[in-house]
Amino acid sequence: MGPRPPFLIVSAVTLILACQSCTGLSRIESPVQEEPDRFVRVEARHGDSPHEGFTRFDHPFPLSVQDWNRILQNVWMQREPGLMALLASQESSIPAFSADEIAFLSKWLNRAFKHAHADEWVVFGLIRAGSPGVTEITTGGWFVEGDRLYLRFTNYRYAVSMASIKDQLWDDPLHSMGVRVYIFAPGDNQSAALIGGGQLGDLRGTSIPQLAIDYGGFLTPPSPAKAAKPAQRSDPTQQAVSPEQGSGSDAAQKLRELKQLRDDGIITEEEYRTKKKQVLDRY
């Protein structure tokens, strides 16, 4: 008497799963800087579909802190136009990183790329406070190929309320949660694309925004005329925030203090909103 049909089916599926597991992702990571709400690591990845094919990067890649600062200041984002764009006006671009984030990344990307090997990504994670009970998480990776520096945002300002999802993104910063609200707004010496996603592609929303930066051209000392204004981009009215300004962290601290005063009942809701608006207006 032969095996029963359910047994055969279960066995077949188990075999399929076992074979697939042979092609699973393997990662070797080493931290460069780990903090509770941000990190930079170098990470070798093998067998990772949307991120493979780049296993021979031109690393190490020495770039000064000042150069990183300049590059990061000129990374801008814009909301991805969707169906509602037909009903609403085009939104302006925003700097991809806050002043604090630029200062942190400049320092640690500089160190990470000095030691990164040819098969290693430089990955990062950042957390910002969002609405009450919510944090916004940005994760992604950098690599250099030829004369281009590439940045992928696997998750950009992805809103999270559950610790387990934050842990997941912290554990694997190149894992996309598949929710893309922003895309790059490329400027001079930059080009943007959506990459990955596999056969199901955008149905699953897995395509990842990628920015290619011609760092050679970008870091060429600008002519006096060009140095007077920031790089050209979709919304020239917006300007990058320099780390020296430092107003972002001050504003954030003041907002936290105001929120605490409101939560403690020391100030009313109306007073809180008025003060909050004043802080944001100054910012």
Partner: peptide, 18 residues
């Protein structure tokens, strides 16, 4: 059969999920 088939198909086609 259908239950496990669904799992099998999903595992093959749908690995980047959310």
């Amino acid at each position: 059969g259908l239950f496990v088939a669904v799992i099998g198909i999903l595992s093959g086609l749908v690995q980047d999920v959310r």
